[in-house]
Design a protein around this nucleic acid. Structure first.
Lengths: 247, 247
DNA sequence: TGAATAGTGTCTGTGAGACAATATCGT
DNA sequence: ACGATATTGTCTCACAGACACTATTCA
């Protein structure tokens, strides 16, 4: 045995500052659909490094106050949007030597989906500006660090899950119509879907229910639905077909 | 502007040791199929903490030699198995205050799939023993840290992807028969599949090709196949049905 | 020839795609 | 009644499941 001391003794002399450790952060891709467009929340960084550049919101884990890494993500989201309970999903962790000028750095990437209804974007000391940026426009911008690649990864995850899950429900306000939900699918996929099969798919999944009301409008009013309690995420046994090209 | 210094000045005075940072590791779930069983590689830890306990192989990022976090995973895998180019996939990152007695800790969890053919398990200083443990048995053991939960997460990811991808091909030796591949699917899923539809599914996917040889045997010899170059991962448009219970 | 395993023929059911037809609103 | 949008009817096609049938090997 090469380690004759007790675990307690080992722990008492262990000091993480004796080791070279990577920088460790959480980055968020917060998506919403607004004005018939997929948008992503970007901040203009108020501090070094990459000061003045557009970036995904994110930051360090607060070892004092965050019990889990999901807490960090939730906290970041709340700071910018005030939203408490979004759909939140870990996308991937990207770590390498070059992505941050401060040194070997690792970031845990999340995406969140929220309805844009009644959201007030909020600055804090870390950002000069906070905006909903259309996804396509965000792709054209030069983003801080490797955030361009992170954004791309989040979108790919979002898009592929839209093909076989009920994810877009989390982008809707509490009540919504089936045509609006279909439109949301179409915006993310960048391709039209068939009305009939879309309705059947969603209704058969038994994840939404009619409120009984209709959406007022200039033409035939559509039935309003709400997500059933604890709908979480429905996984369909077949993917949407004919939608296999990235737009 | 609250930060009038230049980025260069900022970077020159930045020192990661001024901050509280989490412990940061990589853990591996290395799966193989052997003796008609799904097995996972476990090590008996030779060092504190959790010395003497069974654990998933893993360790710290080597900031000197690992350029990316995938490098760390590949290195860990090679240390234990000698395998160079397995199927490797990031499962999730688990970080919280309690999972490691040394403090706030974060681990990036990977799973790897390898054929058990011609693998020599290798000890190093960090482990007293390295074994292929049947998955069901590993679940019954008490594993170090939260490795029980990590193992469970990896298995769930593996199982769900087996339902709609060609993943198990990466568990096969370079040449294999369709009945063996089907058996591999069945072992992971814990349920039998229909011969006819399984064969059609795989062959239509156009990801394997006949070698022209037959596997010798006491009964009718089966045709040997190999994965086509650059097969990567095929995603089927439908999941396998009737296999929706976890065994 | 018979046991054992490999491989095929064929029917059913389900759900996505296509697209036409009908329903319901405001004006 | 008309334009616009919602909702439904119905046909086709691809593919997973079921299961019986045929093929090929060794002893």
């Amino acid at each position: 045995m090469n380690n004759p001391i007790t675990e307690q003794a080992f722990l008492s002399q262990y000091n993480i500052h004796d080791f070279d450790v990577p920088l460790c952060t959480v980055d968020m891709t917060i998506f919403t659909v607004q004005d018939e467009q997929l948008k992503v929340l970007l901040v203009k960084r108020a501090q070094h490094p990459a000061m003045g550049q557009w970036a995904l919101p994110g930051g360090f884990i607060d070892l004092e106050n965050d019990t889990t890494i999901d807490d960090t993500a939730v906290r970041k989201l709340r700071q910018k949007t005030g939203v408490q309970t979004p759909y939140l999903e870990q996308v991937a962790t990207v770590g390498n030597r070059l992505r941050d000028p401060r040194g070997w750095s690792l970031t845990v990437l999340y995406f969140a989906l929220i309805s844009s209804q009644g959201i007030e974007l909020a600055n804090d000391a870390s950002s000069m500006e906070v905006v909903w940026m259309p996804y396509t426009k965000a792709c054209d911008l030069s983003l801080a660090f490797d955030h361009h690649q992170l954004l791309e990864q989040s979108y790919q995850r979002l898009r592929s899950k839209v093909l076989y899950t009920s994810l877009p429900i989390h982008l809707m306000p509490t009540t919504f119509t089936l045509p609006r939900l279909q439109k949301t699918y179409e915006i993310i996929l960048g391709a039209p879907l068939q009305k009939k099969s879309f309705r059947k798919r969603i209704l058969d999944a038994n994840i939404i229910e009619e409120t009984g009301d209709k959406e007022p409008g200039v033409t035939r009013p559509a039935a309003l639905y709400r997500a059933k309690a604890e709908h979480g995420l429905h996984v369909f046994p077949r993917t949407l077909e004919g939608v296999n090209c990235t737009p």
